[in-house]
Design a protein around this nucleic acid. Structure first.
Length: 376
RNA sequence: GGGGAGGUACCAGAGCGGUCAAAUGGGACAGACUGUAAAUCUGUUGGCUUCGCCUUCGGAGGUUCGAAUCCUCCUCUCCCCA
């Protein structure tokens, strides 16, 4: 895997690049649709590839480990073959589940004891076992096992958690480097910066992670409820420390505006459930703003879903029809909205890339942030 | 013609003398959602000058300090028998 920067923006930290993997090249900045359980919910792989133009998708260690389980994944020959997705995959480590499933897990030095949310059974995740599991899942990019700290989070806990995450990182790297991939293509490991909302902890973490000099680096523990300005502040701080020549991945972010701001701060990769989850709940993101498709005002709007949209769904279906589908709780509504939102997100990062290369990113971004944040 | 059951908020449907502007569903409307335990969750849903007041439980009277709840008549619906 290699990362090549094509263009650096002169007015911001934004850059355009190409990340190469054995399953293909990823032009950055990029948005990675989330496919937790081996599926980007409600979207065909066919559409993900040709209509949405997804360049890489996510899978989740915790969820795939519980279902279908390692035997099946191994038997299938990894997640690409199992799900018939031949482009790159990034697997999250389960560190987010340490946060989101905090009611059903116990944190220890060695690792985390989880209670399965499916059947209550007990499972232990250690940095080593999480590396092994991600080898079996077979993602092109694997993530270090960390604790995503909650917000708010007091300083003492944030510091303690950060140190644990760093010790785990060291174990992840040692174990990862001692193992070969199982399916004949390369896998890379990205470490994750933590440190909550504290500048000194973030600095310390970013410096620690920079020293490992891995193929890419991630920023975690943000977009968990902290003020947006704090998220930007931490991102800027960390991007200033992480290696310039390696891709930076801001985990779990975010809204279209968050992504555009993140790019300006030097982030190359994003993922978020928002375009898919919110789509299933009736929310559409467009370059002109946000729509709640359940709202009564769309009931007789027979115009296209999004005149400026790049997906076929934008022109094939009307707002009135899509509203009807949501009001009627028809599955097709979730499918159309998910496809639209993802196509929009991919369009957005693609436009960002063009403007970085053309040299007017900042100006374009400032205008676009205003547009996409409007409520329609 | 005879016998029986019943008419409650947008719909269905509890309530059967005061704690009822009226349970619960559904529908409608609005909001939330950021490395997915989410096709989920939350709020509102008679009116108003909204810590209170006014008008509501088929219609009209009546009993009572007090009625959606009891009585009388009217009216409408459904079921059974002829």
């Amino acid at each position: 895997m290699s990362y090549t920067i094509i263009s650096n923006d002169s007015q911001s930290a934004a850059r355009a690049g190409i990340l190469s993997t054995d399953h293909g090249q990823i032009e950055t900045p990029v948005f990675m649709p989330v496919g937790t359980a081996g599926t980007v919910k409600a979207v065909y792989h066919r559409d993900l590839e040709s209509d949405i133009k997804a360049r890489i998708i996510l899978g989740n260690t915790y969820h795939l480990y519980l279902r279908p389980g390692l035997e099946i994944l191994k038997g299938a020959g990894g997640i690409h073959k199992f799900s018939s997705w031949n482009k790159p995959v990034l697997t999250d480590s389960g560190g987010y589940q340490v946060y989101s499933l905090s009611d059903t897990r116990k944190l220890r030095e060695d690792g985390v004891v989880f209670r399965s949310h499916i059947d209550g059974s007990k499972h232990v995740f250690t940095p080593e076992s999480v590396m092994d599991i991600q080898r079996i899942i077979g993602g092109d990019i694997m993530m270090a096992f960390d604790e995503c700290t909650p917000f708010p989070c007091d300083y003492n806990y944030a510091e303690k958690s950060l140190k644990l995450t760093h010790r785990w990182l060291d174990r992840c790297i040692k174990h990862f480097d001692a193992q070969d991939p199982l399916y004949g293509y390369h896998q890379k490991l990205f470490p994750i910066v933590q440190g909550s909302v504290y500048r000194d902890l973030r600095t310390q973490s970013a410096e620690t992670i920079a020293e490992y000099n891995r193929e890419g680096n991630a920023i975690g523990g943000l977009s968990v409820g902290e003020p947006t300005e704090v998220m930007y502040e931490m991102t800027e701080l960390v991007c200033g420390i992480l290696p310039q020549d390696k891709p930076r991945y801001l985990m779990g972010v975010g809204t279209p505006a968050n992504i555009l701001e993140g790019i300006a701060l030097g982030v190359d990769m994003f993922d978020c459930v928002m375009p898919t989850r919110n789509a299933r709940n009736g929310m559409l993101f467009t370059q002109n703003g946000i729509l709640n498709m359940r709202n009564e005002k769309w009931k007789d709007d027979f115009g296209p879903i999004d005149e400026a949209g790049t997906s076929f769904v934008d022109h094939q279906y009307s707002k009135a029809y899509l509203r009807h589908l949501f009001i009627s709780k028809e599955i097709l509504g979730a499918m159309i909205a998910s496809e639209h939102n993802l196509a929009f997100y991919l369009w957005l990062v693609d436009e960002a890339r063009k403007h970085i290369i053309e040299g007017d990113y900042l100006q374009w971004k400032n205008n676009m942030v205003k547009q996409v944040s409007q409520r329609l």
